[in-house]
Computed example of a mutant assay.
Amino acid sequence: MTDAEWAVVRPLLPVPGWMRGRGGQPEAYCHRAILDAVRYLVDNGIKWRAMPTGFPPWDRVYAFFRRWRDHVLVREFHDRLRGRVRQESGRDAEPTAGVIDSQSVKADAVVGADSRGFDGGKLLNGRKRHVVVDTLGLLLGVMVTAADIGDRAAAKVLLERVTDAHHRLELVWADGGYTGSLVEHCLAALALVLAIVKRSDDMRGFVVLPKRWIVERLFAHLMRAAAWSVTSNDPPAAPRR
């Protein structure tokens, strides 16, 4: 992180237990260095044990990450960052509307057969990521399934999770793949309006559809980041010491 990024991130970090009088000891390494190490690992797709020596020891970084994951602090930190961005954009911290969609992605050979499936529509063997974003394209919820899981079946579970976490959410836009009983279920069980944005029959070629482009942009960012990490020949930036 740059100094400017750290200035934004630092006050949003979860407060360690030892600072709240709940026991434990101070971290042996600066949170900035540990977060940089986690971001480096995710960006470059390396193994924990392959962490460059310029970062804290890999086992300390992993222990930090595991503790945050097990205590749901990763989501708490992410939610605070999203709220900050929304407020700076003139929005309320909590969204009232969102967009849902899914994307099937080819699975690598090392991905077990029990966690992958064949998407007949996309003719692709792999996994499917189901996401809900707010109207700025910021992530509200995500669920990964085998690619043969239907959008409506996954959305029923994902939307329940998202509405439990975001009580002000009242409207979600979706494409034609989410029509049917799911619309009635969302209204009756979740008090959520699922608005279907359909492509008209007379449309030809690429057309930007209202609201749906927001979540499509997120998928484009994800695919671009993945492609860059695979194809870039540039050496990684020197880790912060």
Rank of each mutant, 00 (worst) to 15 (best):
L138D: 12
K122P: 02
R199Q: 11
I34S: 01
Y29D: 04
M51E: 08
F55A: 06
R66G: 00
D79I: 01
L138P: 11
V133H: 02
G90F: 03
P235V: 06
F64H: 13
F64E: 12
R32H: 03
E216K: 06
A7P: 02
G120V: 10
P95E: 08
V110G: 07
M203N: 08
P210D: 03
V162L: 03
G24Q: 04
M223D: 07
T163L: 07
V172M: 04
G21Y: 05
Y178Q: 04
A174H: 08
L81K: 03
F118V: 06
D201W: 11
F55C: 02
E170G: 01
R129Y: 04
Y178M: 06
T135F: 02
P210F: 06
P235D: 07
N233H: 15
I214P: 11
W6P: 03
A165C: 12
G141N: 09
E5R: 10
Q87W: 01
Y62P: 08
L138S: 10
R161F: 04
R60T: 12
Q103E: 12
S89P: 00
V99L: 12
Q25A: 11
V105T: 15
R60S: 15
E88W: 05
Y40I: 10
V105F: 08
A7G: 05
S89N: 14
R168P: 00
A93F: 05
L222V: 14
L136Y: 02
A237K: 00
W68V: 13
H71K: 14
V162C: 10
L190M: 09
D202T: 14
W213G: 05
D119E: 09
D201C: 08
V42L: 14
S89L: 11
G83C: 05
P56R: 07
N44E: 07
V110D: 14
K198F: 03
H130Y: 06
L218T: 07
R212C: 10
A238R: 10
D70V: 07
L218C: 13
A188G: 04
